[in-house]
Design a binder for these strands. Structure first.
Lengths: 214, 214
DNA sequence: TTGTTAACTAAACACTGTTAACTTAGGGAT
DNA sequence: ATCCCTAAGTTAACAGTGTTTAGTTAACAA
């Protein structure tokens, strides 16, 4: 037998080819700069072939992002290793900013684009809340650690609210850099300085007055 | 004589018609959702007529944004009236978040889209640095006031760096809301709570430890 | 050898932003 | 009154987009 299995393997191979070609174009040209025809040309299939594997252009790139969400969570897990909860949150923030500035096109599509609300599919459900592949879950875990350790001011107990605020802070730095970083209108300070002050300021604002010296 | 003047007036009238039609579509459909042909249809001109007034689609919407940059600065000036520098910065932040959440499509185009770098034109030069029409200049002015009043920690003296960090903070809240606010992946807290905590936290992080009670 | 299935393709549809070539209306000068 | 010219506006087309419909082809199962 084994025919079905081979067929499936072959199909998922061309699926991967599509993903690889799309990723390459995507990284250098961004979402709008990639056309289904160009992807098809690279893998030497007809444009229609892509639609046998993905419902539309958006689903194709959502799949690409799934991989990157997981990659980000992995980087978090392998790098955010400080034992001090606040120091760890600072590490997470720095890693996040590094990720965003190194992969601006992915970042744009992952976090700066309004995507039509879609019902969570199987892949989503596997990832949501699992810190190993869900970067938000990892951040929330780290925030909860800090709450439990009493690192924050006593009235700050909602791990989701704190996580969303920390996320917004670093997201603000990255997304402003990507969207307006080469705008002459503003006399931009170096990105590293802005990132540093943001992390410093936000965490200082979350902890009790005496906890941070400086 | 006066012929030339009438001609110019007529031309700028159809120019305004184009801008009005474009704005209406833009507000409800966003940049990608607006086509030159639909704009033309509304004002009952041929699509090509638009190109007599604007070099391309992007210039048309840049013009729209110019108006909104100025509008934002006006709202700042008329509303951010507290005499306490820190309280005023909090007001500015709240106004900015309100502006962004009430005009998501404009906000997206103004601050979440990478636009090709363009040499500042006459209109730009008129606006840059003028707090009456340049919202960033207004923010920087308010920050400088706080620096001069000794409201911040003593090592914080760079008004540009502080402004850019404050901007990034509120921008993070809005842009994350616009891009991911209806995403099921995250258990979002109410926007008002996130905005409040962000402003509270950031300003607390900028001032000396004893300056804010709570 | 036939029938079925599933991968794949060619051609077309309905769009998009933009441009080149043409028309036309209005005023100035002879 | 006639000519000319300017500039606003139009028609038709180009080159591209995402996507769909109908058809082909190749490989396996019966």
């Amino acid at each position: 037998m084994g025919v079905k299995e081979r067929r499936e393997r072959e199909k998922s191979e061309t699926r991967d080819k599509i993903l690889d070609a799309a990723r390459e174009l995507f990284v250098s040209e961004g979402y709008e700069g990639v056309s289904m025809r160009r992807v098809a040309e690279i893998i030497e299939y007809s444009p229609t072939a892509i639609y046998l594997h993905f419902a539309d252009k958006e689903e194709l790139f959502r799949e690409l992002c799934h991989q990157d969400y997981a990659r980000l969570a992995e980087v978090f897990q392998s790098s955010a290793i400080s034992s001090d909860p606040i120091e760890r949150l600072k590490q997470i923030g720095a890693i996040y900013i590094e990720f965003g500035t190194r992969n601006p096109n992915h970042y744009k599509f992952m976090f700066m684009t309004t995507q039509p609300v879609h019902e969570p599919d199987e892949l989503d459900r596997e990832m949501i809340g699992n810190p190993e592949v869900d970067a938000y879950a990892f951040l929330k875990w780290a925030v909860q650690q800090a709450v439990d350790a009493g690192s924050f001011r006593p009235e700050l107990t909602d791990a989701d609210l704190i996580s969303q605020t920390l996320w917004a802070a670093v997201h603000g730095v990255i997304s402003l850099q990507i969207a307006k970083g080469s705008d002459q209108w503003v006399d931009w300070r170096p990105l590293a300085d802005r990132a540093e002050l943001m992390l410093e300021t936000t965490l200082r604002g979350l902890v009790p007055p005496q906890k941070v010296e400086g």
